[in-house]
Amino acid sequence: MKLSVTLWLSLALALSGCFASREARIESDYSYSGNFRRYRTYEFVTGSGLSADTSKVGEITRDAIRTRMKIQGYRAARNRPDLLVIFRLFEGDMAFRGYEQDDITRWVNNGQVEDEDTPKEERKGYQPVRMILAEGTLLITLVDNRTNRAVWNGYASGVTVPPGPQGEVVIRRSVRSIFDQYRVFTEGYLNGTEGQGTQN
C-alpha cells in the first residue's frame, strides 16, 4: 500500500517535531499566595517583547495558550481579568531558580492560600532549586492582576523552533506540555456548575 505524498510529509513533520522536543525539560513552580480557586478570566500583557509580538511565532504562541486556557475553563477578558499572561522565548543557556514543591493540584485541592495573616510557623516555605536551562526556553508566567504578583511559572527548555510548519508543531507541543504542569480548572467547570454561587 502506497502512502500519499501529503500523508508522508505530515508523518515526517510529526516525527521530526517529536525528535526536536525530545530533550525538552518541562518544569513549573507556583506561589503559595496564589488564590487559584478564584481565577476565572485572563488577558495577555501588552507592551514590548514576545507577548506583544505580532510575528508568526508570537501569534502561534498566543493562540496555543488561548486554546489551553479555554480547555481549562478560563475566559478571555479585557476588563479587569483575574490573571495576566506573560510569555517569552529565551535563546541560549540560562541559569534559572525554581522551587521544589508538591504538585499544584494537591495544593489547590487542599484549599490553602497563604497571605500576610498566615502565621510564620504555618507557612509552607520555598525550597529553591538552581537549574541550567538548555538553549531555547519558553517561559509562561501567570500574574494575579489584583496583587500584581506572579503566581505560576511554567517553562520548557531545550526546544528549538525551526522555520516553517514544523516550528508551529514544536511551539504548540511545548505550550501543551507546559500547561500539563498547570492542571488547574476553574471552579465548577468540570461538573458544569461554574459560576453558581460564586462572584468574580
Rank of each mutant, 00 (worst) to 15 (best):
Y126C: 00
N109Y: 10
N110A: 15
D93N: 11
L138C: 06
G167Y: 06
N110P: 00
V113W: 09
F87I: 07
R88P: 00
M131S: 11
N145I: 10
G92N: 06
V161I: 15
I65H: 01
T160M: 08
G92F: 05
L83E: 10
A156V: 03
G136I: 03
P128Y: 06
D103Q: 11
I171N: 01
D180L: 08
A76I: 04
Q166D: 03
E116P: 01
D102G: 08
M131F: 13
M131H: 14
I71N: 09
F96K: 05
S55E: 07
E168Y: 00
L84S: 02
V170G: 00
M131C: 04
Q166N: 10
I171Y: 05
A76P: 03
F179Y: 10
G167F: 03
W107V: 11
G98Y: 01
E91D: 13
G98F: 00
I65W: 02
L84H: 01
Y189H: 14
I132V: 14
P128N: 06
I171C: 02
E187D: 12
Y99F: 15
Q127R: 14
P162W: 07
N148M: 12
Q127W: 04
E116A: 11
A77M: 12
P81R: 09
R146C: 00
D115T: 11
I65A: 04
R75Q: 12
G167Q: 05
S51I: 08
R68N: 09
T186N: 01
L89N: 12
G73W: 01
R66K: 13
L89M: 15
K120L: 10
I60Y: 04
D63Q: 13
S55L: 03
G58W: 02
F87W: 14
S51N: 14
E100W: 11
G92V: 07
L84V: 07
K56C: 04
E116C: 03
G158F: 07
V184A: 05
Y189V: 01
S177H: 04
A52I: 07
R97V: 15
G98E: 08
L133N: 08
M69Y: 02
E122F: 13
L84Q: 05
S157V: 06
P128V: 13
A134E: 14
D63H: 04
R123H: 08
R88C: 01
K56F: 14
L142M: 14
E187S: 09
I171W: 03
I140E: 07
V113M: 12
P81Q: 06
D180C: 01
M131P: 00
